[in-house]
Design a protein around this nucleic acid. Structure first.
Length: 314
DNA sequence: CGACTTTGACCCGCGC
DNA sequence: GCGCGGGTCAAAGTCG
C-alpha cells in the first residue's frame, strides 16, 4: 500500500521482459518461426535503407511520445506533491520528546507529517498509532510519513550505502526473518536533533536492489547546502522546501551520474516540471536506452522484423 | 582524538 | 503471560 519510489542508478529503461518494449515491434510480424534471419536475406540496399529510415522515424516518434508521457507524469506528480504539501501544512506538527525512545519513534512515525526530504510520494508504512496526543481523525491522516526508495546498485556492493546527500550514522544492523540480507539502521547525524531515520536492506528478490526506508523529516538544511564548498562527497546541491528539506539535483555543475538520476527521480519536491529536468531526463533515457544491449538487440530485432516483412521469404 | 561502525544485549509491541 | 522479532542502545573497535 505504500507508494514507493523506484530509483535506478542506471535509470533502467531497458525493455525488460516485464516491461514491454516501447517501440513495439510491428504487429504484423513475420509469421511464426524465427525472426532474426532477415539480415541473411537479400534485400536491395534501397529497401534496406528505406526500412531503416522508416523504423528510425517510428522510433523517433515513439521517443517523442515517451517524452511527452514523461512530462505529463512529472506534471501530475508535481500536482499531487503540491496537494500533499498543502494538506501537510494544515496539520499541526508536534515536536517529539527525545526522551522516550520507543515512543518517540512511533510518534515520529505518526505525527510528524513528513513529506520526507526525498519527498517521495508519501506512503504510509505508518503503523497504527500509539500516539497519545494525536486524537487522530483516523483515515485522512496524510500518510506521508515513511518513504521508501528503491535503489539499484552493483550487486557486489555490499555496503548498503545509499547516497542521498545527507549524513547518516549507522546505529544498528539486524538480520530479519523474511530476508537473508541484514537490515541496517541509520540516523541522520548532521544535526543532533534531526529525527530522521533510515533503514536500508537489500531486496529479497534482487540483490542488486537496495530498499531504503526513510522515516521522519529533516529539520535542517542538507549538508551540501549548508556547506557549499565542502566536498564530503555530496556534490548535488540541495534546496530547502518550506515544508521540508528537499534534494534538488544540481544540473549546472557536473554531469550527473546514475545515482544523481536516482535522486532526481526519487526526490520528491524538486521541480520536476522544469525544462532542465525534463531535458535531462530525456537525455538520460536516451543514453540509457542506447547503452543497453537489450535495447539494441530489440531494436535490431524490430528493424529486421520490419525488413523481413517487407521482403517476404519465399 | 573524534567520528563512525560493529555487534551483543536489551526494550517493547504484538500475536498466540 | 510468554515468546518472538523488530528496533535501539551503548561499549568496544576502527579509521583518518
Amino acid at each position: 500500500m505504500d507508494t514507493s519510489s523506484w530509483v535506478d542508478t542506471s535509470l533502467d529503461l531497458s525493455p525488460s521482459s516485464d516491461r514491454p518494449l516501447p517501440l513495439d515491434t510491428p504487429k504484423k510480424e513475420p509469421s511464426g518461426n524465427g525472426n532474426l534471419i532477415v539480415f541473411g536475406k537479400k534485400l536491395s540496399m534501397k529497401e534496406e535503407s528505406g526500412a531503416l529510415v522508416e523504423e528510425l522515424n517510428r522510433v523517433n516518434e515513439e521517443n517523442k511520445k515517451l517524452t511527452e508521457m514523461l512530462a505529463a507524469m512529472c506534471e501530475s506528480y508535481n500536482a499531487l506533491q503540491s496537494q500533499l504539501t498543502n494538506l501537510m501544512s494544515k496539520i499541526p506538527v508536534k515536536e517529539l520528546s527525545p526522551s522516550k525512545k520507543r515512543k518517540s519513534e512511533s510518534s515520529s512515525n505518526n505525527n510528524n507529517n513528513d513529506n520526507y526530504n526525498f519527498g517521495i510520494i508519501g506512503n504510509s508504512e505508518s503503523s497504527s498509532t500509539d500516539e497519545d496526543s494525536c486524537k487522530k481523525p483516523k483515515e485522512e491522516i496524510i500518510k506521508a510519513k515513511v518513504s521508501r526508495v528503491y535503489v539499484r546498485t552493483e550487486a557486489s556492493d555490499t555496503s548498503l550505502v545509499v547516497k542521498d546527500g545527507y549524513q547518516w550514522r549507522k546505529y544498528g544492523q539486524k538480520l530479519t526473518r523474511d530476508n537473508p540480507s541484514p537490515i541496517a539502521y541509520f540516523k541522520c547525524s548532521f544535526a543532533p536533533t534531526c529525527p530522521v531515520k533510515k533503514k536500508v536492506q537489500r531486496s529479497i528478490d534482487d540483490q542488486s536492489v537496495v530498499i531504503a526506508t526513510y522515516e521522519g523529516e529533516h529539520n535542517h538544511l542538507p549538508p551540501s547546502q549548508m556547506e557549499p564548498t565542502s566536498g564530503s562527497g555530496h556534490r548535488g546541491s540541495a534546496s530547502l522546501n518550506p515544508s521540508g528539506p528537499t534534494m534538488t539535483p544540481d544540473f549546472g555543475k557536473t554531469k550527473p551520474s546514475g545515482s544523481d538520476v536516482a535522486r532526481i527521480c526519487s526526490s520528491g519536491l524538486p521541480k520536476m516540471d522544469s525544462p532542465q529536468v525534463r531535458q535531462y531526463l530525456v537525455e538520460q533515457m536516451a543514453t540509457s536506452l542506447t547503452k543497453d544491449p537489450k535495447f539494441t538487440a530489440a531494436l535490431a530485432a524490430a528493424i529486421s522484423g520490419r525488413m523481413f516483412q517487407q521482403s517476404p521469404v519465399e
